[in-house]
Amino acid sequence: MNIAQVITRLLQLIPVIIGVTFIVFSLMYLTPGDPVEVMFGGEGAVSEEDLARIRRELGLDRPFFEQYLRFLGGLLRGDLGMSLVQRQPVARLIAGRLPATIELTAAAILVSLVIAIPAGVISAVRRYSTIDKLGTLGTLLGVSMPDFWLGLVFILLFGITWKVLPISGRMPFGMEPEHVTGLFVVDAVLTRDWVALKTALRHLALPAITLGTSMAALTMRVTRSSMLEVVQQDYITFARAKGLSGTQVVLGHALKNALIPTVTVVTLNIGILLGGNMIVESVFAWPGLGRLVVDSIYNRDYTVVQAAVLIYAITYVTMNFLADVLYTVLNPRVRF
């Protein structure tokens, strides 16, 4: 695939994203509840006339389409509105939380790939062996154990019984590395702050393993089944007939073919995780996007929820696009 094709594909995303903004805005508009009342904390605190005046000032009395166009205009300028509860720009709130979520997502994906790809490949190549059976058992456990439960078990074991790993937050207050990207691990490396790096990794460990384990289960399953299909292909026999060793055949010939379905699963998983995993972030008090959304839903902070939903949708669309691009890299037969 060449650059022109990538750009064409990117341009095609624009109408999709506009459609997404419309749906998100409509849903929020139709949701029962009055944002202005939320701002002033329940009924009776402020007089009816004042409420009407504030609605007018905020433009909430305007027709639906005018409000939508204002919202769209704001988006183009990077303005996601003001948080009704925290009285801060939503964009700033989200920007503050995003690095935590990105860091956790990256770590979780890394954990899941490190477990899933080798396990999937080995259990396919050594089908019905002990390793395969253990893998199948592990997958079953990984899929069946809910994240929050696994998280709690980890907290009990590593945090409370053995006291070897921290169980909440990203970093003790005041230990953060100098701000560069907001990703503590990256910042710590960039500023050569090894103490912060160690602390950041220790904090990441449990939530990342919790998220990574359940993702690894599915990824491994997909890798195993596609690998099983690939090893039966004629080109694998031919590769062996060339005199390649088992390992060379698997790594050099089978893996690239077998990873094609895996890529779809993994990129979609990234899409889901980047939205912030509300459950795992809550269990580990991880200050990411997921917890911001949970808090905002409790507080009826409409503008924050709206922006978050929009970000989820756009992330998902982007990840889909990325999956398509990776697909053509792995599989030269696929064309846009």
Partner: peptide, 16 residues
Amino acid sequence: LAMIFQDPLTTLNPVL
């Protein structure tokens, strides 16, 4: 000792 097979489409690795 070398061998060639029936269908070169399925015998050559499609992604390499």
